[in-house]
Design a protein around this nucleic acid. Sequence first.
DNA 1: GCGTGATAGTTTCATTCGCAACTACCGCCG
DNA 2: CGGCGGTAGTTGCGAATGAAACTATCACGC
Lengths: 183, 183
Amino acid sequence: MKPTASVLTDDISPIAASSAESDIASDEPLALERFLPYRLSVLANTVSKDIARLYAERFGITIPEWRVLAVLGRFGPATSAEICGRTAMDKVQVSRAIARLEEARHVSRSTDPNDRRRASIAMTAAGRRVYREIVPLAQSREALLLDGFSQADREQLDGLLERLRARADELAEPDEGEVGGVV
Amino acid sequence: MKPTASVLTDDISPIAASSAESDIASDEPLALERFLPYRLSVLANTVSKDIARLYAERFGITIPEWRVLAVLGRFGPATSAEICGRTAMDKVQVSRAIARLEEARHVSRSTDPNDRRRASIAMTAAGRRVYREIVPLAQSREALLLDGFSQADREQLDGLLERLRARADELAEPDEGEVGGVV
DNA sequence: GCGTGATAGTTTCATTCGCAACTACCGCCG
DNA sequence: CGGCGGTAGTTGCGAATGAAACTATCACGC
């Protein structure tokens, strides 16, 4: 009664790979390693961790903190909400990243006198120093990642990722009036 | 002495946007939203969460658990170590996913009599039932994501992602004798 | 002015994570 | 055998997450 076709052997086989390209048809096995969400997840993880290591050990900065610095470095002082919009992190994450950055004296917080709920976050001199050191590190890592990609490759990648992002956003929030997109 | 050019105004401007495009030149600001690692991370997150919701609420299954099922569904019974190799998760994550799946009676564990350290994990009938329900859900979600992508687009995407993955792996482990890659 | 409902941001709490120990077991050398 | 190093998998524990509740503040209507 064994479903002959399938790969359900009893022994602990080494890698098996290949196959399954033919009989995907009907409804059965899903090839995880070809499954886009999975691939994106693994790739993003590998890349993020790799880069995170760079500044984690050197500056004691985490990914969320780096993102906050990146926004401040690019756009200057911003409120927590603005940082949320630009980093695609949620407000809790941003709040905590700011708290840690503030403790490390990389940013300072100043309450808006016109609306005392809001506070403007700005990098300190020390923060800018760190930022200026990290940026080239990050960029060179990105360059390494894209090493061997022609200009055309890069443009294709850019376009495809952008389309995917747009599509993913649509799917994730079937309605929503496009609050303050990342760009 | 203010570095005039910069966007470091004191007031809490609404979005500021634009600007900064000019003085990027020298070495300064990094555009987070153009930064590949960031884009990958955000995209992967959006997609993963979207899909995770599908089976989380319906079957109480988490991403690591789903990945384990995916491997078992595709290749049949496997050891923890094999699952690690195929899912790009680390052994702790796999161990815990298996524990939860076992508790939910989705998989069963049988110790290898020849090496009592190892155990073969197999889906139960219930597990297979869940698997068979999730697969089409996941696939249709992927299809939705790729809706509007021509065959050529897909092939390009596929190739680019694969190259990035290979590159990222290289960068992450500067040496390592390629143990048991995901493919 | 003063409740009422929204908003900015923080805290709480329960869960998840990941590393580093740890346990249990195998295989080999003597 | 009998110990010694190596491997499979688990557990402990501090740190990170995320959803939901909470605090402080504003804006508006009356």
